[in-house]
C-alpha cells in the first residue's frame, strides 16, 4: 500500500510538469534567433566584428560610422556569393586574418585614409558574409535569419565602438591599443589552429 502511495504521488507530480515552450526553432522567431546567434556563437566572427567597431572609434569621425555601414553592405555581397554557391577560397583563413589585420591596425595605431580603411574592412566583410550566407538556405526563415545576423553583427560593432571611445583619454588609448593586440593574437590562434 505504501509503495502504491509513492507511485501515485510520483505519477501525479509527473503530470504537473508543463510543456517546454521556450522556443521551437521554427518560423520567423526561430530564423531570427538562429541568425542572431550565428555571429555571436563564433568567436572568430566576434573578435573581428568588435575589431571593426574598435578601429572605427579609434580612427574617429567619419570612420566611426562609415566602417559599420560599409561592413554589412559588403557582407551582404559576400553572403550573396555564398548563397549562390560561388566559391571563395580560404574563407576561414580570411576570417582569421581579419582579426589579425584589424587588431594590428588598432594595436599599432595605424591611421590610413578613410577609403583605404573602408576597402580593408570591406574585403574582410566578404569572407564573413560568405560564411553566413552558406548557412542561409537551411534557415527556418531566411529573411528573419539574415536580419538576425546583420543586427547581431551591428551590435558587435557597437560594443567595439563603445570600448574604442575610451581612446579619447590617454589611459583609455593604451587600453584600446592593448585590446587590438589581444584581438590580433586571438586571430593568430585561429589561424594556427590553437583554438
Amino acid at each position: 500500500m505504501r509503495r502504491m502511495n509513492i507511485f501515485a504521488t510520483a505519477v501525479t507530480l509527473v503530470l504537473y510538469a508543463g510543456i517546454a515552450t521556450a522556443h521551437t526553432g521554427a518560423g520567423v522567431s526561430g530564423g531570427f534567433f538562429s541568425g542572431f546567434t550565428h555571429p555571436i556563437m563564433g568567436w572568430d566572427h566576434v573578435v573581428a566584428m568588435v575589431a571593426v567597431g574598435l578601429w572605427g572609434a579609434f580612427l574617429g569621425n567619419p570612420a566611426i560610422w562609415i566602417l559599420p555601414v560599409v561592413f554589412p553592405l559588403v557582407m551582404a555581397f559576400g553572403g550573396a556569393l555564398g548563397v549562390m554557391g560561388v566559391p571563395i577560397p580560404a574563407v576561414e583563413t580570411g576570417i582569421a586574418l581579419s582579426a589579425i589585420v584589424l587588431g594590428a591596425m588598432v594595436a599599432f595605431a595605424i591611421r590610413p585614409p578613410i577609403w583605404a580603411a573602408a576597402v580593408i574592412v570591406g574585403t574582410f566583410a566578404i569572407f564573413h558574409g560568405h560564411a553566413h550566407g552558406t548557412e542561409l538556405p537551411s534557415a527556418a526563415n531566411p529573411l528573419a535569419y539574415s536580419l538576425g545576423f546583420v543586427i547581431a553583427t551591428g551590435l558587435l560593432h557597437l560594443s567595439g565602438i563603445a570600448f574604442g571611445v575610451l581612446a579619447r583619454w590617454p589611459a583609455g588609448k593604451a587600453a584600446v591599443q592593448a585590446g587590438g593586440g589581444v584581438i590580433a593574437l586571438v586571430g593568430v590562434a585561429f589561424l594556427t589552429g590553437i583554438v
Partner: peptide
C-alpha cells in the same frame, strides 16, 4: 548615424534574401 546604420542593415538583409530567392529560381 544610428538611422543610417539601420538602413544599411535593411539593405544587407534584403540583398541576402534576394540572392537566395534568385539562386533558388536558377
Amino acid at each position: 548615424i544610428g538611422i543610417r546604420v539601420i538602413g544599411s542593415w535593411i539593405a544587407a538583409s534584403a540583398l541576402l534574401v534576394l540572392a537566395l530567392s534568385m539562386s533558388a529560381a536558377r
